[in-house]
Design a protein around this nucleic acid. Sequence first.
DNA 1: GAGAATTACTTCATATCTAAAATATTGACA
DNA 2: TGTCAATATTTTAGATATGAAGTAATTCTC
Lengths: 158, 158
Amino acid sequence: MNAVGKDTRLTADHHDSLRLWLRLLTCSNLIENQVRKALAKQFKTTLPRFDLMAQLERAPQGLQMGELSRRMLVTGGNVTGIVDQLERAGLIARTADPDDRRAYRVKLTKEGRRAFAKMAVEHESWIVKLFDGISVREQRALNESLLQLRTHLTRKTS
Amino acid sequence: MNAVGKDTRLTADHHDSLRLWLRLLTCSNLIENQVRKALAKQFKTTLPRFDLMAQLERAPQGLQMGELSRRMLVTGGNVTGIVDQLERAGLIARTADPDDRRAYRVKLTKEGRRAFAKMAVEHESWIVKLFDGISVREQRALNESLLQLRTHLTRKTS
DNA sequence: GAGAATTACTTCATATCTAAAATATTGACA
DNA sequence: TGTCAATATTTTAGATATGAAGTAATTCTC
């Protein structure tokens, strides 16, 4: 392949990456908007609050603020605000961390667990409905590709 | 397949959809965070501003506020705020729409076009770097899958 | 073991973002 | 042609977001 041919190919690849990123973002935003609207309508809550509760649900021993921040891919200041809101609503609680007096251990309250359980069932059904029509084979392929991409990005951006 | 078997399979599929969505969101957020930081560091600007300018770059005749809102997948009120900021910075301009006195036609200024051209080159190189290490074949496959998904979601959510 | 660097968290200023209400203009239609 | 729903935009209140600065506790290091 000559120099011009190579340049052309590289340029095309560049545009491929860009287009890939834009499509990824669009798909993500389309789903996010649907879920946000459904959460607001059916449960009077928001996506970040649901996300935070979902993180806690998977960690019954509780999570530190910093750990929540890392898992949710948002800054610490942001987590403070969301935790404040959920705590005010009685859905989660800050408990003292026995090993580190700087840190909290944030946990779901009993009411929080009950509320989340209800929302999680509905949430899953919304997602299933959104993907309904995409073949299981295609979904599995996408799932696998995105796992690879996530691994790649995590390594690259950490 | 008996009833129990079918239930099991359906449940597994449900979890597949959910996991697919979470991976999509994570990948999207990881890239978004990188791009946001790079835009802030190198160009003292933000992702929504860059996005809005990118939309205008592709539409030399200008776009109405509502059209920007639809293309960016955000609400109209949000667009008002971002346009205000960019206009204050002299990068875009609201011009009267000759056919509709309710509407503006938002356009890049000459300075806006110049500024965007510089940013776009860098932006593309960041994206290429982020995907560097994922094979071209894999990127194309993902690209194709996401196009399908986008089409599917657009139909489903409109 | 005292001082320095690090870590965990909050606070602050500012920029997005949404949903809903308000304003102005357009277009359809009886 | 007057009325009235629909459309284009802005404004408002409130919830997320970020980055940076501040406070408190821990850990590293000599």
